[in-house]
Nucleic acid binder design. Structure first.
Length: 536
RNA sequence: GGGGGCAUAGCUCAGUGGUUAGAGCGCGGAACUCAUAAUUCCUUGGUCCCUGGUUCGAAUCCAGGUGCCCCUACCA
């Protein structure tokens, strides 16, 4: 029986942005989920990318004296390079300006037009002539119906646009979300619970049809089929949000990849600000297309910076420069650990605080995992020449139950999309090892050669628990755990590579995988303890 | 304006009606020395935001209030 396939996505990032901690966070969570799934032997597809068809992209490119294409290429390149540098294991990187996406979106829109779920209507709103853009009613009111740019009055303008018949799907969305029912054989979970309640409330308020086109941008965006020939509309392009949402499907809507949509567990990760598009419009679009729904949407909260909201005016974004500095000072795994264990997967925002980063790094990685491996490997070298001794003595305790518990808890945490909890469960096994060492004091026993059989048994228990913890923690701390494997002479990394990236989580986390006689090399500290520079 | 969320130890959070409210980190003390001045143990620490209500019983449910936050249609 093969394990269910897994397809995990991040939002595609706005190509005018510079990568910051928010992008890195969502992508890291997706990466951990993807790595865990592959480790568990599940065929996995992990997608991220860039969203490029906004009008502002055309404008920014012009401001910078570049063609839209060159500007988008440059910025998308920065995202791709950033994720590559951060070791993200994404299987693809979609850019909405790529033909493979545009071709699919054209087809989806054609289908919607044919079924009547997309139709021509009048769009009416407050128009800022100077900016050539509409403002939402609420915003227009906030600006007292004057342009925020030049102060000229906004005008009430009406134009022909294509609309998506969102209102039609209200009953099905409520069945899916409020009552948890399956629609067309699939259910759709919005997490966390608070976010689901939020969206249910909003859907109950009533759904209006949404515009899904804009009057055309020259040479940018995706044309609405037939609009150019329609004198009523003139050339129109697919509204950028609709265009963007389709990426999740367009990338896997190919002969070889279709299985990742039709026959896979599909998880969309996003931040809470774009809940509406993902929890209401996206499933409605899929229902309209007759496509299967994703299994779950998880909308996490935000990072704030040192207690303050991140904003351009405060200039306190955790940007690429800061991210690079953390990677340099604490290693990539150190950054991943902080993001995953301290990040805003709940409904509250999390604080990216330097002091907290250092505290957690020292307590959990340096003093915890790193030191534990260090003491176990050191005693093995010191008392047994670096080889796990034959099992001839009694340790006087057993770590197998703690290991089983950790394995179970990690699985539960991942199933709940709480990789941070999973990381803590893995670390708890390390704590159990530290406690066992303290309780039995092998370093004292070793002073009398008669005790060596017991010391050997103790070290076996400890090394075996560390081995299992390293497998459980690998999705979060790939570099450090692979170092542990290398020093224990384990070929898990090679096995995964040979197995198409798929691991053997069950086998590798079963007690007894460490054989007597195997070498353990102590090596350099896995995580150097961070001592803050002295302030005079 | 409308909708939603959050408020529990110094910090970050668990805890959705039932014994003296928990964890991690930090702080203080002790033990220990294999280890990265690491580890382990003990201690400290809370009118569970306020007021009122429902209940035999409320951190938990309800109402009102206060504070902070998010969404309200192109910033993870």
């Amino acid at each position: 029986m093969s394990k269910p396939r897994f397809y995990v996505t991040t939002p595609i990032y706005y190509v005018n942005d510079r990568p910051h901690i928010g992008h890195v966070y969502t992508t890291t969570i997706a990466d951990v989920m993807a790595r865990h799934a592959r480790l568990a032997g599940r065929e996995t597809f992990f997608l991220t990318g860039t969203d490029e068809h906004a009008t502002k992209v055309v404008e920014k490119a012009a401001e910078n004296g570049m063609t839209t294409r060159a500007w988008a290429d440059r910025n998308a390149g920065i995202f791709e390079e950033t994720f590559r540098k951060l070791g993200m294991s994404n299987d693809d990187f979609i850019r909405t300006s790529q033909d493979r996406h545009k071709v699919k979106v054209t087809r989806y829109v054609t289908r919607l037009l044919a079924s009547g779920d997309a139709y021509l209507g009048d769009y009416e709103g407050w128009y800022d002539a100077g900016q050539e853009e509409y403002l939402p009613d609420a915003k227009a009111e906030e600006y007292q119906f004057k342009s925020p740019f030049n102060g000229k009055p906004l005008v009430r303008k009406k134009e022909k646009n294509y609309f998506f018949k969102l209102s039609k799907y209200q009953p099905q969305l409520l069945a899916l979300l409020e009552r948890g029912e399956a629609v067309n054989g699939a259910s759709f979970a919005v997490l966390p619970e608070a976010r689901k309640n939020e969206i249910v409330g909003r859907i109950k308020d009533g759904l209006n049809d949404v515009p899904m086109s804009r009057s055309g941008m020259a040479d940018w965006g995706i044309d609405i089929p037939g609009s150019a020939q329609n004198p009523e509309t003139g050339p129109q392009t697919v509204y950028v949000w609709i265009d963007a949402l389709f990426n999740y499907l367009s990338v896997v809507d190919t002969q070889e990849r279709r299985k990742f949509w039709d026959d896979a567990e599909v998880l969309h990760l996003t931040a809470k600000d774009i809940l509406w598009f993902h929890a209401a419009i996206w499933p409605a679009l899929l229902l309209a297309l007759g496509e299967k729904l994703p299994n779950a949407l998880y909308a996490h909260s935000f990072w704030i910076s040192e207690g303050q909201k991140m904003s351009k005016s405060l200039g306190n974004f955790i940007d690429l420069e800061k991210i690079d500095a953390y990677v340099r000072d604490f290693s990539l795994d150190g950054l991943r650990w902080f993001l995953v264990t301290q990040g805003p997967m709940g409904t509250n925002d999390s604080d990216f605080s330097h002091a907290k980063f250092v505290d957690m790094y020292n307590a959990e990685l340096a003093n915890g995992l790193g030191n534990c491996f260090s003491r176990v490997s050191n005693m093995t070298e010191k008392y047994f020449g670096g080889a796990i001794p034959a099992l001839v003595g009694e340790a006087g305790f057993q770590l197998a139950p703690a290991a089983e518990k950790a394995v179970l808890e990690v699985a539960e945490a991942i199933a709940k999309i709480q990789p941070g909890q999973g990381a803590q469960a893995g670390l708890a096994l390390i704590r159990a090892v530290d406690k066992a060492i303290e309780d039995t004091k092998p370093f004292t026993l070793a002073k009398d050669p008669a005790n060596l059989p017991q010391v050997g048994a103790i070290l076996y228990e400890c090394a075996e628990a560390v081995r299992i913890a390293s497998v459980l923690l690998w999705p979060v701390l790939p570099a450090a755990c692979e170092k542990i494997w290398a020093r224990m002479g384990l070929d898990y990394a090679a096995q995964m590579q040979a197995g198409g990236g798929l691991g053997k989580l069950e086998e590798w986390t079963a007690w007894g995988g460490l054989l007597p006689g195997m070498k353990i090399e102590k090596g350099e500290a896995l995580f150097m303890r961070h001592v803050p520079p002295k302030t005079a």
